[in-house]
Design a binder for these strands. Structure first.
Lengths: 337, 337
DNA sequence: TTGAAAGCGCTAACAA
DNA sequence: TTGTTAGCGCTTTCAA
């Protein structure tokens, strides 16, 4: 196969000037072309398998057709469905996704975002924000349209799409209270993430106790869950139900409870958050708050597309997608209700 | 902030011609610049925060600095670690990853690969190949360097990086036979995937029985595992150990065995493949073959980088990365050995 | 409605 | 070693 067809080849074949061919192929408003001419150009383009050179177009139009997707760790099970949703919507709009994985490292985040900007991404989807994330906060001042997913930055004027964690937590607490639990403890993830804070505030609101037991962890991981569960058993043995900050923390609780000879849910109820793969295959299957992750990604992508199209300068719009409590086998009435 | 600095701005500030500035910034071989000049240019570039415009550079050099990463489903837990490895190595080399998710749809795969080519990706990493994948097979004839991961195409002259499934399966079978199992059944995934065939062949080789029990499934999913396990119990009740095509199929087995009142591992041993997240938290924790997924991704990226650098036209090199049998609680000696 | 001309920012030949 | 020149392929004025 020879070199690929250019707009000049198309124009030549259609017997018109390249500029005319370009106009015919780009149904933009000004300078319409005659229907018959347009037909010939389109036909020629099809025959030649013409695809505009993105570099040339981008150089001219200052648009790359690229969106950067910044994730904390693609191997974290919460992230892939979000990316799927984003990717799906953006490809449909003719935009490609540059994936950037920060590995939860703020320096790497800064470097990758700089690189993404250097590559002239038309927009950014950011899933890595910490509450005090300077790098991300600065994006609000810059010209590159940005949408946050799941994690918010405090005080930054950036739109956010996330799961409605508060309502999920309220449903979880209501579920536990209906079962008869009165000693419910909350084992959180890292406080620098907005998700942790949203869940924590909702827990405090819903639990109906002045000073509920809350233990803070350093990560959203199984080891964190183990550490916290061990602390909980030692300091607050009267607890009958655990609301874990996420599913991994809940699994850590499973481990420690089993080691302590306590049974879930008979001796302790456990609720997770996220409904990640396989938590329904644990023993017992985990009751947890499901988040519509793919829809979150899709919605974020749509908002970004609107911005790219020049719409809505409504800075920090927050779009919360409905969550759902999935009741499984890890919750039951307390022993001595 | 005004418009971003161009090479002309840098050149002006350094008091040299743009071409000289370009040479100073690109430590390519021909046309070296004087050390002092280079220093001034680099300094000027730094002061101005100069970043070359990728579109302009790409238009000139015919290199986009982009690699397409084609995955069957980013939400499939096997995939993200691979992508991480790829992404990590490529970013380090100054190359960005365009993520394309085919959702296991051959038409979508064809469309996305066409799009990736239209966008002038310098190379492709493809994790979606089926054994008879025409779209991917054609890539061998094209000019765009391509590396396959995990899944091979039959007869295509394309390098592949994958886990050494055969050795993993051999280790698994050896483990079961050492425990005393003689009736080992293999429940496979879809036959159109090369992974299935590799694992199946290794199983046949290792099991030491003329006509071992093999049941074929249609997917690598929990429902598939359930279907196959149910068939197995009905048709081959003498079986004492199951080698599942992957972890999801193994989990499906767990479900059906429990429903049938059979205990793992006492009544039936089960071995998975992949060692995906949380299989170590199942009851019992799953014995499985771990695959170095991130290393596979890294290796694939390195091979692609070599190709981009013009190295090694050794077409269909196959690089198998060592797997490891992780023995957990789902395997034990058979009841009546 | 179409053509002519210019230029986006960069780098590769060639010349000095 | 550096400067000059040209052009990658496209779109967008402006003029016809």
């Amino acid at each position: 196969m020879g070199r690929r067809a250019t707009i000049r080849d198309v124009a030549a074949r259609a017997g018109v000037h390249p500029a005319t061919a370009s106009r015919a192929l780009n149904p933009a408003l000004p300078g319409r072309v005659a229907a018959e001419t347009a037909r010939r150009v389109v036909e020629a383009a099809r025959e030649l398998g013409y695809r505009p050179d993105p570099a040339a177009r981008s150089l001219r139009t200052r648009r790359s057709g690229l969106v950067g997707v910044v994730v904390p760790d693609i191997a974290n099970p919460v992230i892939p469905p979000i990316v799927r949703g984003v990717e799906n919507v953006l490809w449909s709009a003719g935009i490609a996704c540059l994936l950037a994985d920060t590995d939860n490292d703020p320096d790497r985040e800064a470097a990758l975002i700089a690189e993404l900007r250097a590559r002239r991404c038309d927009g950014l989807i950011v899933a890595t924000a910490t509450r005090a994330d300077e790098t991300v906060a600065h994006l609000a001042d810059e010209e590159v349209p940005t949408v946050l997913v799941t994690r918010a930055v405090e005080g930054a004027d950036l739109p956010l799409v996330a799961g409605d964690d508060a309502s999920g937590v309220r449903a979880a607490v209501a579920h536990l209270r209906e079962l008869g639990h009165e000693r419910i403890a909350h084992l959180t993830g890292p406080l620098e993430l907005s998700t942790t804070v949203r869940r924590l505030e909702a827990f405090r609101d819903a639990v109906g106790v002045d000073d509920p037991v809350v233990l803070h962890g350093e990560g959203f991981t199984i080891p964190t869950g183990r550490t916290l569960a061990a602390q909980l058993l030692e300091r607050h043995p009267e607890t009958t139900a655990i609301l874990a900050g996420n599913d991994m923390i809940a699994v850590g609780c499973y481990d420690v409870l089993a080691a302590a000879g306590l049974r879930v849910p008979d001796d302790m109820s456990v609720v997770g958050h996220n409904d990640m793969p396989l938590v329904d295959s644990l023993s017992p299957p985990l009751t947890t708050v499901a988040i519509p992750q793919e829809e979150i990604g899709e919605q974020a992508a749509r908002i970004l597309l609107d911005r790219l199209a020049g719409d809505s300068p409504d800075g920090s719009a927050v779009r919360l997608m409905p969550t759902e409590l999935v009741v499984r086998g890890s919750t039951a009435p307390p022993r001595r209700a």
